[in-house]
Design a protein around this nucleic acid. Structure first.
Lengths: 132, 132, 132, 132
DNA sequence: GTGGTCTAGACCACC
DNA sequence: GTGGTCTAGACCACA
């Protein structure tokens, strides 16, 4: 399971978005989707840090914030687990709520670029088919 | 002309995105879409600053960076205008390139949320119809 | 490495040329000459600022503009380094292109001062031998 | 004579150097070289302004500063003349002094670009032969 | 430790 | 009127 998680985690150091935030957002989404289940172990700080050539403190900060907000639990000597307390997989509506800001941002940019509705629909459909 | 530009410029001080960056992104998109044409004047630093209740230097910083990257030109003692060196309104392909990162981000998030293709298509279509 | 860079950086506060521009020009030339290589770190904003007794924002402005134009890259939480995207050390031809405006300005002034060719050649040769 | 002066005057609006300063420097050099003699008329403010598509006030400012420093005299109804009072054509040594800053700037830039002595000599000689 | 953002205010240069 | 430069200082974000 750990290895598979690693595959999903995807850090883009030069994207402008802070590394710790990239990790937090991705873990949250993986929990919301049921990809990560309560009790699942997360890869160790060291493991992630060396894998992405990142300062371990950065990973640790992400985990700590996820712990503080109840998504993860720290088990002494065993690492971080997905918390039982919080709901686990969310219904589709909740997940779509999480996705909403990204949709709005896309629409805003398309509007300012004066891209017509039909054009945008076709492009998005193509991306969904190929990449999703 | 100034007044029309002003209507489009839209600053959200508490959005987390730096003010100067909001301005840069919007001006770039207004140029790409042909809304701002080569030779058009931009509203003065002081004008924008007082309108949005921000420090003139913040606006000046945005304009300077747009000048450094070739989007704007300085008219000494007059003001800033859209550079004619860089092509002005861009063809639809170029604009879509600009939009691409936002699309990719959306797809990545949808994937991690395990939202199915059909579901996503329907949601996006709705947004495009209503908001674009 | 830092120390060596520091030796080269040379600010003349009262030269009329803005401090941030002096820094930009010098960094550009140090990159073009291969003195600064892709991946090299630059001295920190605070370091340069205290060394030359200027406001950190002034240095920061120079670095930001060099980043906007692709010469430098930010390492978040670390510092600035020379970008590897842009070729690094340039061939002699490219460097001479950079030098060209200064040569043209010299020729224009000499022409307007009606300084004869032979005279100018001798003077320049002397300067090259002694100062270059 | 006026027309010939016009040929020498050369304004580069986007060079970074203020227009009024470009004019001042050029007039000074033309006087130093004996190209403009005491009593010579300068082209009218309006003439120069329309020729270079520049604000007449900018030209006027240049002339006023040249008057204040004794290079020109204002004759009511006749325009500006080169002043009799100041020495007119200067000896070669003086002229070379005027040229010195441009030479030093060139050497500084060549040094930072790591251009070798021989290379620089050849380039400069070429420019002198062709352009001076 | 690093750089970034913004402010308030002074002063300059140009047109 | 326009933009530019710089300062001093506060506060934030990141590693």
């Amino acid at each position: 399971m750990v290895d598979e998680n690693m595959i999903m985690l995807n850090i883009a150091p030069s994207s402008g978005i802070p590394i710790y935030k990239q990790i937090i957002d991705q873990v949250k989404r993986m929990i919301a989707s049921g990809y990560l289940l309560p009790g699942d172990e997360l890869p160790s700080v060291r493991n992630v840090a060396s894998r992405f050539q990142v300062n371990p403190m950065t990973i640790s900060k992400a985990y700590s914030l996820l712990e503080a907000t109840g998504y993860l639990e720290r088990q002494r000597g065993k690492g971080m687990l997905v918390s039982d307390k919080q709901g686990g997989e969310k219904e589709m509506d909740k997940r779509i709520n999480i996705l909403e800001p990204a949709i709005k941002e896309l629409i805003t940019q398309a509007k300012q670029l004066a891209i017509p509705k039909d054009k945008l629909k076709i492009i998005i459909e193509k991306y969904i088919e190929e990449k999703l």
